[in-house]
Nucleic acid binder design. Structure first.
Length: 913
DNA sequence: AGCACGCCGACT
DNA sequence: GTCGGCGTGCTC
């Protein structure tokens, strides 16, 4: 008999075998979504294989849901890899690759067949009364339970009422929540319209004749001034036909007019990088590049041209960006170049818009897809290029729900599998990527210099260049050696190979453990050491007589990377008796900018007014009821707020514990810095950007636009001020407290701090005005600070890699994190201990492997759930599969956790606390 | 994830 | 005794 292997979209291990009725045989192809009987109900699954054979257990497929398969064999293979690598079910992985809300399944619906009074028993009456509220449309079983004020539905009672004919319980097909939108369209039948007298009718017919294709009724009526009765009349006369056709829901924001793409000439360094990428695109073998370019080196221009090369070959491309809201410039430039060939996915899209975009991508209408991490599963065919912009960004890692995948690593795998080229771009590559570049696994492309900037002429004249209209390119810049060279991370080039699973190659290389990047101090600095001295800037290009100025753009010489100065807050406190958050020097620097009419960006990576309140009399500190953190004072509405669960309560005027009027506000967040600036510079125009001021849709962009137009002197905010923005008049970047996050118990804390500081430092002095960066810290000797000071990524990476090597952390070790959550501290700890013991027994036989934990999470309780962590740490030489098997075995041994408890497995975790 | 079965304590 | 709560196991 004909069989199909089907993976149900449920967290069960599959696939399951079904028989295929003759009528569905042609449609039930691999990759198609199907409706299958599963237990007592029916649900959506995906056909992953077809075949012939005998199976006694196999039930027949109920229906095929796709006219065209939802998943290509390539995406099926990709999702299966994600499932095995990230330890989730194939069904969970497939679910992330499909638009949400499109599942079809049956649910039990209970309907009342009699009025409540007809029932003798009290509970029977209560059930019927609950159903009566549903107006005969019935209730799903959980909804019924809720309507009765119970946790679970009374199953036995239900069965009795069903048997006695008081209620019906039926499985009913629930349509997908998200469906294609169909709207009424009008066409002419071709019948002779002569003899029509009504002006409206004539107008409508003329419009339809002009169009020559079905026109949306709403559109036709608006354009012709007709009404629906006009249509009725025409239909009655047999002149017009109506039909329901699918329409695409699009995001209006994307229809905004675009500045034409500037045709710029590349800097030789960009040219060299692009050349290598193009060669790889032209070749047959898959290849991954690290494009390491400082802020302002023109990475986007390289992406654009690489993508053009792939498109020219008839291939498609995927561009991953960390978060669309934070990268509007990048998105706009792709749209300016590729127009309606680009599908943009972003987090603010409605499920319907997403579905429509997804459908059209699958139908091949968009060869370019740009979006956040989930876009790596976009159903494009003939993939030629995958770009991961800002590859170091933590937002590429998904945590909830499973699969807990890293989109960058999935990107590398997908590109490899498709024989495509993958480009990972960053100014501050993750150390994983740096190690892969160093070992030769990824080809290394360096763009260590800023390039001249092209701005629209009128913008230059007014002194304010709207961020979106800036493009990068250069002409006539003397070529420096821009040969790609490996990162100078130490000795041992060649023999060390760290191979990420995402490479799609072997999982491990036993016996090829990377050597320690020893003796880092004496190793030569390689091709990438950003110039930190302003004394030798690249020569300015001629700004006239070239094509670009003819098209309304002018070239501005690149600014050198700005000098960075560290302000030791501890010393500042001693010497100058620092009050508030802003040191004397930072205030003076800000004053200068105000006087010169230049702009300042201030980073304070903490929102609210004061993160801690303390009663000086009794020591009371407000803490969240549901989370083990102290509450932050938000002065704007006088609330105490929890930054983990969002809970807010009134800020008490006096200490609720002892009644003393002695509450001291410790530390400062953005609101307090805002207040301080207002006191010191009452004339300054200030914009604050943090989660509190950007919660409304579009608020984020509004603030940036206002700042870009020069409507404010100072932009103050959390790390969102550090991302990909280009404001020509910003000449000062101040970091109010560089230590936030630096001392967290996470082996990546230092890396993240360095990346944030490097990123925000790159915001100063991007055009003709020289910039300056001031870092305030209590830890001036910290490596993250010291290397940010010199813009020296290479030195930072070198040093940090040595540390990682000695500690056995990634990229020199593998890590699987297990989070155990539960409602009580004791029960959760016990479960965590039991799980950890089970894992330890499995891991004891694996050489070099450690089981660390369980330890209480850094924030022990969040939203009422206690959290404990255990980590499995192993050398890279241990195959990932061995570790995964150990974790699976431990999970199986422990079995299902008690009610209310959860165990989450996180392969390659990104945050440890 | 549902859904059903079957075992326990708390009421009539 | 029955009902409701909850743990356990299964779903082609």
């Amino acid at each position: 008999m004909r069989l199909a292997q089907v993976v149900p979209l449920a967290p069960v291990e599959g696939p399951f075998t079904y028989s295929v009725p003759d009528a569905l045989d042609a449609e039930a192809v691999v990759g198609a979504r199907v409706l299958v009987p599963f237990g007592r109900r029916q649900l959506t699954g995906v056909v992953v294989a077809r075949g012939e054979g005998e199976s006694a257990k196999a039930k027949p497929l109920v229906d095929v849901l796709d006219a065209r398969p939802s998943l290509t064999p390539e995406l099926l293979a990709l999702t299966r890899w994600v499932a095995t690598y990230y330890l989730c079910t194939w069904g969970e992985a497939i679910k992330t690759a499909l638009p949400s809300g499109t599942e079809v399944e049956t649910r039990r619906i209970v309907r009342a067949l009699r009025p409540p009074e007809a029932e003798d028993g009290d509970d029977g009456r209560a059930l019927l009364a609950a159903l009566a509220q549903s107006n005969g449309s019935g209730l799903k079983v959980p909804a019924l339970a809720e309507a009765m004020g119970r946790k679970t539905a009374p199953q036995a009672l239900l069965r009795r009422l069903e048997a006695s004919g008081a209620v019906s319980v039926e499985y009913e097909l629930q349509e997908a929540r998200t469906r294609a939108r169909v709207e009424k369209h009008l066409t002419l039948t071709g019948a002779d319209p002569s003899g029509l007298t009504g002006a409206r009718q004539q107008a409508l017919v003329a419009l339809l004749a002009d169009a020559g294709e079905p026109v949306r009724q709403a559109e036709a009526l608006k354009a012709s001034g007709a009404s629906s009765s006009t249509v009725k009349g025409l239909v009655a006369r047999g002149l017009v036909e109506t039909q329901d056709l699918e329409v695409e829901r699009t995001d209006d924001a994307l229809d905004a007019p675009l500045a034409p793409a500037a045709d710029v000439t590349l800097h030789p360094m960009q040219e060299a990088a692009l050349g290598e990428i193009r060669t790889a695109i032209g070749g047959d073998a898959p290849q991954t590049f690290l494009l390491h370019g400082v802020t302002g080196s023109g990475k986007t221009e390289v992406y654009l041209r690489a993508l053009a090369a792939a498109l020219a070959r008839g291939e498609s491309g995927i561009v991953l960006v960390p978060e669309i809201a934070l990268t509007p410039q990048t998105v706009r430039r792709f749209r300016a170049h590729f127009g309606d060939r680009v599908a943009v996915m972003h987090s603010r899209m409605s499920p319907g818009e997403r579905l429509d975009a997804w459908t059209r991508i699958r139908d091949g209408k968009y060869p370019v897809v740009i979006g956040p991490r989930s876009a790596i599963f976009a159903p494009v065919e003939n993939l030629g290029l995958v770009i991961v912009d800002e590859e170091h960004e933590a937002s590429y890692k998904q945590f909830d729900p499973a699969p807990r995948y890293h989109a960058r690593d999935v990107a590398v795998f997908r590109a490899h599998q498709a024989g495509a080229v993958c480009v990972l771009g960053s100014a501050t590559p993750s150390l994983e990527t740096a190690a892969n570049a160093r070992s030769g696994k990824y080809a290394y492309l360096a763009m260590p210099e800023r390039v001249p900037v092209l701005v629209r002429k009128e913008s230059v004249a007014s002194g304010q260049s709207p961020a979106a209209e800036v493009a990068s390119g250069a002409r006539g810049v003397p070529a420096e050696s821009s040969t790609a060279s490996p990162l100078s991370l130490g000795e041992g080039q060649g023999e060390g190979r760290t191979s990420p699973e995402a490479s799609g190659e072997t999982r491990s290389h036993p016996g090829t453990q990377p050597p320690p990047p020893a003796d880092a101090g004496t190793s030569p600095r390689g091709g990438f050491d950003a110039p930190s001295d302003a004394s030798n800037p690249p020569a300015a290009p001629e700004a006239s007589g070239d094509d670009s100025s003819a098209t309304g753009y002018s070239l501005l010489a690149p600014a050198p990377l700005p000098p960075v100065r560290v302000i030791d807050l501890a010393r500042e406190k001693e010497v100058r008796r620092l009050k508030g958050a802003l040191s004397h020097d930072l205030r003076e620097a800000m004053r200068q900018r105000l006087e010169r009419g230049e702009q300042t960006i201030l980073l304070q990576n903490r929102r609210g007014y004061a993160p801690v309140i303390n009663c000086e009399t009794c020591g009371w500190t407000p803490e969240c009821r549901d989370c083990s953190v102290s509450l932050t004072l938000h002065k704007t509405n006088r609330t105490l707020r929890c930054h983990y669960c969002g809970r807010a309560e009134r800020y008490p005027p006096v200490c609720p514990s002892c009644g003393a009027d002695d509450l001291k506000l410790l530390g400062s967040g953005t609101q307090r810095v805002e207040e301080e600036i207002a006191e010191v510079f009452p004339e300054a125009r200030l914009l604050r950007m943090d989660m509190d001021t950007t919660s409304r849709k579009g608020a984020h962009q509004k603030i940036l636009d206002r700042f870009g137009r020069g409507e404010a002197d100072i932009l103050l905010g959390t790390q969102m001020v550090a991302k990909g923005l280009d404001f020509p008049r910003v000449t000062l970047v101040g970091v109010v407290n560089a230590d936030t996050g630096m001392l967290l118990p996470d082996f990546r804390a230092s890396e993240r701090t360095f990346q944030l500081l490097a990123q925000v430092a790159g915001r100063a002095g991007r055009h003709d005005l020289p910039g300056e960066v001031l870092l305030q810290t209590r830890n001036p000797e910290h490596p993250a600070i010291q290397h940010a000071l010199n813009h020296d990524y290479s030195a930072f990476a070198r040093e940090e890699l040595v540390e990682r090597y000695h500690l056995g952390y990634p990229p020199y070790g593998r890590l699987i994190g297990i989070e155990i959550k539960g409602p009580y501290e004791n029960s959760t700890h016990k479960l965590a201990q039991a799980w950890t013991d089970a894992l330890a027994r499995r891991a004891s036989g694996i050489a070099g492997t450690d089981v660390l934990g369980p330890v209480a999470a850094f924030v022990g309780k969040v939203k009422g759930f206690w959290r404990f962590h255990t980590h499995l740490k192993a050398p890279r030489t241990v195959p990932a599969k061995i570790l995964a098997d150990a974790v699976s075995a431990a999970t199986a041994e422990i079995g299902a956790p008690p009610k209310g408890h959860r165990i989450n497995v996180d392969v390659d975790p990104v945050g440890l606390y």
